[in-house]
Design a protein around this nucleic acid. Structure first.
Lengths: 204, 204
DNA sequence: GTCTATACCGTGATAGAC
DNA sequence: GTCTATCACGGTATAGAC
């Protein structure tokens, strides 16, 4: 199946996504256009329609999927080697927020609804649900390890966790874009903010 | 000064802002155009340049200012009659988040950096700082009333407060837009989330 | 203050030659 | 698979008549 032709094709798609990420990172998620990506690819706009037949929305959709993959990979790197438990969960939260501020374009696409007509396709939404399941699994593992109270895997606890991460990312990206994670006025608060959650849901 | 001519002029500006709010509420903050506002005003686009000479950016700027005024007014209504203290602060937080999800267009403009080229003018930023000072005053008053610990007026406490509000608004607007404050999956968590803050910074 | 007219640019998207 | 050509449409913004 992956003969020479389809490999080249995948490479082109890959490169298009790379340039797409560049554009939204530099200019914000609302600044993406087919033309600009084609320009950076050294192509004419119509040619890109061979790779993204439904145009701009397909490009956004692919970037959304790419964003989730990258966020997941970054989070996994951040927790590598840690045993299930509170410390691992904390590392996951830190890693996720760090990834977001270092990839603001993709993070905006994932966490803000900032592109007027766009919403992710069902297939991509399924990926998103899988990501949420991953968080639920981490929480359950920490509960099983005796480091979190049983309620930590309730919907309210999970949603609260996402509210904290979302607030950290959003405030940093909106008010002090470009600041490194360790120096950002808001991202510096990641640990104390997560402490608020652990004080409620951790076992002490 | 406010002769007949300038009053009519103010009315037109007022109406333009009204339609601008409508547009971003309906279609998101990225969907605002001079043409659309002119259309709704029953005007041609060029005419609007008499009121917003620098075009779209001036319109965004005016909407930003309007958003801050409305948010401030809504918050003040929410705390009317309450004495300085923790209860008043909580009501302010609730009122602010409620206003945001009921006015998502303006809230996006204020709290996300979702419009590619735009940033608020210095004059409007001054308004923003005034709003932050208001929060600091509330916190200090609650400290003086003996209901918050002294650290509650530190930068870290203030920033943490804004992180919580931002997370609540953002998660609700991005994941469940249109849901009423009292029913939203995330806005329902406003009280328990603010509890996290009061558990750290309140006196018990 | 509003209009028409215009210049200019950009976009998304499709058809069809090569 | 890429291109040129083209369509249709939208936008911002300015000049100048009324």
């Amino acid at each position: 199946m992956p003969d020479r032709r389809s490999r080249r094709r995948q490479d082109t798609i890959e490169e298009a996504l790379h340039h797409g990420v560049q554009v939204i990172t530099e200019q914000g998620v609302g600044a993406l256009t087919i033309s600009e990506v084609a320009r950076r690819l050294g192509m004419r706009a119509p040619s890109l329609y061979k790779y993204f037949p439904s145009g701009l929305h397909a490009l956004y959709d692919a970037l959304f999927a790419r964003g989730m993959e990258e966020a997941k990979a970054a989070t996994e790197r951040a927790v590598a080697g840690l045993a299930p438990g509170a410390a691992r969960l904390r590392a996951a939260g830190r890693g996720y927020v760090r990834w977001a501020v270092e990839n603001p374009g993709l993070a905006q696409l994932l966490h803000w609804r900032a592109v007027p007509g766009f919403e992710p396709s069902p297939g991509v939404m399924a990926l998103s649900h899988a990501g949420q399941q991953l968080l639920a699994d981490e929480l359950q593992a920490a509960v099983d390890a005796g480091e979190l109270r049983a309620e930590a895997n309730d919907e309210e606890a999970i949603d609260t966790w996402t509210v904290l991460l979302s607030g950290l990312m959003t405030q940093q990206m909106a008010n002090e874009p470009g600041a490194p994670f360790d120096e950002g006025r808001f991202t510096r608060l990641t640990d104390p903010v997560l402490d608020l959650w652990f004080e409620r849901y951790g076992t002490h």
